[in-house]
């Protein structure tokens, strides 16, 4: 059992997962930001590996990736930064990124180094289920990593069940078909989440995209196990000298 399962065993609701970009705002920010998130009471961290062409992300997260790349961030550098990080960060950490840099690093080597770090799970939004089942899934499983699929309001019930069966850790509900950082009609989101709740899925559900503050977080948690905040957090730390202070303030405002 890894940290993700442990977390969901202990805590069924109001789980707060926060996204941050590795190497942002400074190259060396990766671990200090994660530590500050954890110390502020975040339950889980989604750590983004920057990519030049992040299709599923909006302008704010892409800009943070561009900055991180300019800072010199690479997957190899990230794994160096993560050496020994478990002495400070004990919450579950999921690596989020795109296929191309992972393929260049070497898919199996990547899984091995992620498991060594140790990282708990992976989100690769442009790895579709066909490729997962035929080629990459067995490698991910061999290294004991969770793999989290996304579902959207446009995903059919049959397909949701399929993706739920392939996912380990949790299922990532994208609150509407959209890139990150767009405002959402929360009523439509609610209908979707209720539909998921009624399906009695195998995995817990975390809601992402469009969650930005206390009210949206609370609303998302009504029909799901928790929520993921990305763009709003990146905005909160992008123009500040005191990243740790800004992180604490941002998370405290949500959890208060």
């Amino acid at each position: 059992m890894n940290r993700i399962q442990e977390l969901f065993n202990q805590k069924k609701g109001n789980i707060l997962n926060v996204y941050c970009t590795a190497g942002f705002p400074q190259l060396e920010s990766t671990v200090p930001v994660m530590k500050a998130l954890q110390d502020s009471g975040v339950d889980m961290i989604e750590l983004g590996m920057p990519y030049s062409d992040p299709l599923a992300d909006g302008p704010v997260i892409q800009a943070s990736s561009t900055k991180a790349l300019a800072n010199g961030m690479t997957i190899a550098t990230l794994f160096e930064q993560l050496r020994g990080f478990r002495q400070q960060v004990y919450v579950p950490v999921i690596l989020m990124g795109y296929m191309n840099p992972v393929l260049q690093y070497g898919f199996e080597k990547f899984c091995q180094h992620a498991a060594d770090a140790p990282i708990d799970g992976l989100i690769l939004p442009d790895l579709p289920e066909y490729e997962f089942e035929t080629e990459y899934g067995p490698i991910i499983q061999r290294y004991g990593l969770n793999f989290i699929f996304l579902v959207t309001p446009e995903t059919s019930e049959e397909r949701i069940r399929k993706l739920d069966s392939l996912s380990t850790g949790f299922l990532y509900a994208v609150s509407s078909s959209s890139t990150t950082g767009k405002d959402k009609d929360m009523n439509a989101v609610n209908d979707f989440l209720q539909r998921l709740q009624n399906m009695k899925l195998k995995n817990p559900v975390l809601v992402g995209f469009g969650i930005k503050d206390k009210p949206t977080f609370q609303q998302a948690c009504e029909h799901a196990n928790g929520a993921i905040i990305g763009t709003a957090f990146i905005k909160a730390i992008e123009n500040t000298a005191d990243v740790e202070g800004a992180t604490k303030k941002f998370i405290t405002d949500i959890k208060s």
């Binding site: 299709l55 599923a56 296929m99 939004p125 442009d126 790895l127 579709p128 490729e131 699929f149 996304l150 579902v151 959207t152 446009e154 995903t155 397909r159 993706l163 994208v174 078909s177 959209s178 890139t179």
Partner: peptide, 8 residues
């Protein structure tokens, strides 16, 4: 190789 949001 597309994200789920494009699947439909």
């Amino acid at each position: 190789f597309i994200p789920e949001m494009l699947h439909r």
